[in-house]
């Protein structure tokens, strides 16, 4: 299985993924990136903060800019006054 690197960029800066993880394909890596984003945001919400400015940049051995999953893509946010 190919190895993908999930680098995180959020309000506290860049967290580089040095280990990487194996996924069957890029689609699976993007699904995992979304799950990682939800887990990180869930912890922030418990501390009373939700900052949607951030992304996970997916790289592989060849391409450092293979794909990007923005936080906003991983979470459906409905604000007061908006229709759900």
């Amino acid at each position: 299985m190919p190895r993908f690197y999930l680098h995180l960029e959020n309000r506290v800066g860049l967290t580089r993924d040095h280990d990487g993880q194996e996924f069957p394909d890029l689609a699976a890596a993007r699904t995992a990136a979304a799950a990682n984003i939800r887990d990180i945001l869930a912890e922030e919400v418990k501390h009373g903060r939700l900052d949607m400015r951030g992304l996970i940049r997916i790289a592989d051995a060849q391409d450092p800019q293979l794909s990007v999953v923005p936080f906003a893509e991983a979470l459906a946010v409905t604000l007061e006054g908006e229709s759900g």
Partner: peptide
């Protein structure tokens, strides 16, 4: 990182962070 995240009940990127 994945094994460490399996100890902590969080995802690998969250572990890394």
């Amino acid at each position: 990182q994945v094994e460490l995240s399996d100890c902590l009940g969080i995802t690998p990127v969250h572990t890394n962070r």
